[in-house]
Amino acid sequence: MPYAELDDKELVKLAREGREPAYRELLSRYQRPVFSLVYRMVRDRATAEDLAQETFVRVFNSIDTYDPAYKFSSWIFKIGNNLAIDHLRKRKLDTLSIEGSPHATTADQQESSRITVEAGGENPEQYVVHRELGSHIERAIGDLRPEYRTAITLRHVEGYSYEEIAEVMELPLGTVKTYIHRARSELKERLGHLVE
């Protein structure tokens, strides 16, 4: 069966019938989006892996409770975001670095905790320039309030509409718009000299 051609709701139906390839296809579709969201929230690779794993385990082990009236992606983002928020409430972490964990004390730890990005078809020079600018942007996003981080990531990395973000964050539409406007204003203030 060509699982890659099925939409999320069809995959959920097959997963409920106990088909492991359906679970694997959902994982393949959402592991990067969910990990990206959670990583940008908690700013630590190992913690982000744990929380992203927990997100999938919770979603898959309660797949029978999924309501097809909602988007599957919204459901999984909601659970991932809630887990990240809960984690942040318990523990505050410091600076984000796409170059590796801020807790790394050796070069090996730094290398092993580095983040891999999706290949964008850039040449090496473009990649170096983008990576430097990207690091500044990631750091600036990391300094935002957690709820701003979620909103900005969903809007600009996942391309979610304001309404979908409101659904994931369980907030009124107006609040989400305010969050995004304020977050972008803070980013522009910090990055204006770099991006213009």
Partner: peptide, 16 residues
């Protein structure tokens, strides 16, 4: 704003 939005739009998805 367009410059900032363009840069935000290029943020990558990170891989576990």
């Amino acid at each position: 704003w367009r410059a900032l939005l363009a840069n935000l739009g290029e943020l990558p998805r990170l891989a576990p």
